[in-house]
């Protein structure tokens, strides 16, 4: 951002200092709990409950992580649950990107009877939040025997209206000449989609992929409904159960929390461009 917004100078020194204090205070408020998580994850439980909180313990308690991985019953089910979360989040991300760009492309670049009606219909589903349809979906999934399966976890999220909207908006600006040139060269429509449209939609796909992955990684409500067995649990469910069972050892709890956050933190620090700059107004419409 250019300097001009900074040059519109502030109300003198005292206001300037106040603003710095506020910014630093806000950062401290936001970052402290994260630091607490990391700090406590290396502590024996007795140290965490010391007054005042010591922040750095005399003995680094690395076994919290090992014990967190092993789980209270030594079954390493945490690893299995992490794998479940990855499988579900990746599968949903892939289908969402594919289906959204496919229909986004259809809506943006093809003229056909009923196109506007289809677009409006898809946009209307934005008004149907998942929380209001979870009960019927749950009943259907029970009837179809999707309980406790990957299919049950994945199918209700194959695509979403926001994804279609995002891809359509992006592809509206895609140059028609390129598509027509490919058609004249004899490329079939599916081939144009896979070889020209998809490879040139990088930024929009990255934004959509990250948003989708994150919301699935975070999903608690639906897995809570469809999953019964410990093996099929995803990470949010594992943590929920873990909390109820070993409420005593805070150190292990924080180690599990830190391990569960690792994938998102890696994604956040390597792809922060797509988290921060492109996540403008429209990408957050999904809510």
């Amino acid at each position: 951002m250019s300097d001009i917004k900074a040059r519109v100078s502030f109300l003198g020194k005292s206001a300037n200092i106040l603003i710095w204090l506020l910014l630093i205070g806000a950062c401290a408020f936001v970052v402290t709990p994260l630091l607490f998580m990391f700090s406590a994850s290396f502590m024996p439980a007795i140290d965490i409950m010391k007054l005042p909180y010591p922040w750095v313990s005399d003995h680094i308690h690395r076994q919290n992580y090992w014990n967190g991985l092993r789980g209270p019953d030594g079954s390493f089910v945490f690893l299995r649950n992490t794998l479940n979360s990855l499988i579900v989040a990746l599968a949903v991300t892939i289908t969402t990107v594919l289906l959204s760009s496919l229909s986004g492309y259809g809506l943006a670049k093809f003229r056909f009877k009923g196109r506007n009606a289809v677009f409006m219909l898809i946009m209307a589903t934005m008004m149907i939040p998942f929380e209001t349809i979870m009960i019927p979906l749950y009943m259907v999934s029970m009837k179809m025997g999707l309980q406790d399966s990957y299919a049950g976890l994945i199918v209700p999220f194959l695509t979403n209206a926001f994804g279609v909207f995002l891809m359509r908006q992006f592809l509206l600006t895609f140059p028609d000449e390129v598509l027509d040139a490919a058609r004249i060269d004899g490329a079939s429509e599916p081939r144009i989609f896979t070889h020209i449209v998809l490879p040139n939609s990088g930024p929009a796909i990255a934004t959509l992929a990250i948003l989708t992955f994150r919301s699935q990684w975070d999903n608690l409500l639906w897995p809570l409904l469809v999953v019964q067995s410990d093996e099929m649990k995803t990470i949010p469910l594992y943590i929920t159960k873990f909390m109820a069972e070993t409420h005593s050892d805070e150190g292990i709890m924080m180690a599990v929390a830190a391990m569960a956050s690792l994938p998102m933190f890696i994604l956040f620090f390597t792809m922060s461009k797509y988290f921060i700059s492109t996540e403008g107004l429209h990408s957050t419409i999904k809510g």
Binding site: P33, R214, L220, I235, P236, M243, M253, M254, S261
Partner: peptide, 10 residues
């Protein structure tokens, strides 16, 4: 970037 479950836990 944290999941809400982790946030609640912390």
């Amino acid at each position: 970037a944290l999941s809400s479950v982790v946030a609640a836990l912390i």
